[in-house]
Amino acid sequence: MTITTGIEKKAPVATGHGARVHLSRTAKYVLLVIFLVAVMMPVYVLVVTSLKPPADVNPATSWGLPVRWPWEPVAPGGPTGFDNWVIAWEALSGAIGRTFMLAIPAALISSFLGAMNGFVLSRWRFPRADWVFTFILFGMFIPYQAIMTPLVQMKTSLGLPSDISTLILVHIIYGLPICTLIFRNYYVGIPNELMEASRVDGAGMLRTFRSVVLPLSVPGFVVTIIWQFTSAWNDFLFALFLSNQRQGPVSLALNNLAQGAQLANYGAAMAGALLASLPTLVVYIVLGKYFIGGLMSGSVKS
């Protein structure tokens, strides 16, 4: 019961023979590296531009490295490259804090509920269990625009605040389908004997869940928590429709920084984009395998 993403390399495969193979191998590596550079290119632009003071951001040198150290101003006393980061931090830090307050509880709660659902759906055969599963799953695929108009009206008529607390609720609710799916597929892999043993001991379903299943569920939780955390962090749609600039998450603040008052300040916008992406990037780099595990579960098949 480990998380397998299905994309790891299997045993080494014997490769062909002769000079032709060598040539095509070289060509393949050249291509792979070209693609690597192309995919990394936007990151290069982000980093380089974020370190240039506004005066140095011009079309002619836009792809070049900064011409001065980020702490050196263009004119004495003028703005430096680091100032971009200061502007970005001041614009985003509050929102970044709020987004943690949003993404962490949303991820934890929907994961826990998803684990319960997944457990039930993977083990107990009740009438029309498959229908129940499809009923839940459909919620994963709907375009959220399809419920946005009445959701906005509902929020207004219930008097819910335009802040993080409403977004937590929304992310828990719409995270339920994917979390249920991930856990169901995960629990299908737990041997039946383990459950039977505990049932013979007279444990009820809840006891079995708590004492047998939950301790085995850590990898499943890592996947769903990462998935939910990332999607809550990166969400823009719900944030835009249900919260506002002052009380909303980082995606709104970043969009405001990039398109708002300081329109011409590309450096600060790019520093902001990097700051806002840092948490999810760190998660991806440190826990990549689990991140991919969540991605793959989106294709329904376990």
């Binding site: 995919v39 632009v45 990166n234 823009f236 995606s251 970043l254 990039a258 790019m270 998660v283």
Partner: peptide, 14 residues
Amino acid sequence: LFPMAISFVASGVV
């Protein structure tokens, strides 16, 4: 695969 981890808003900036 890494661009998957970034939001459309952030990548939209660049």
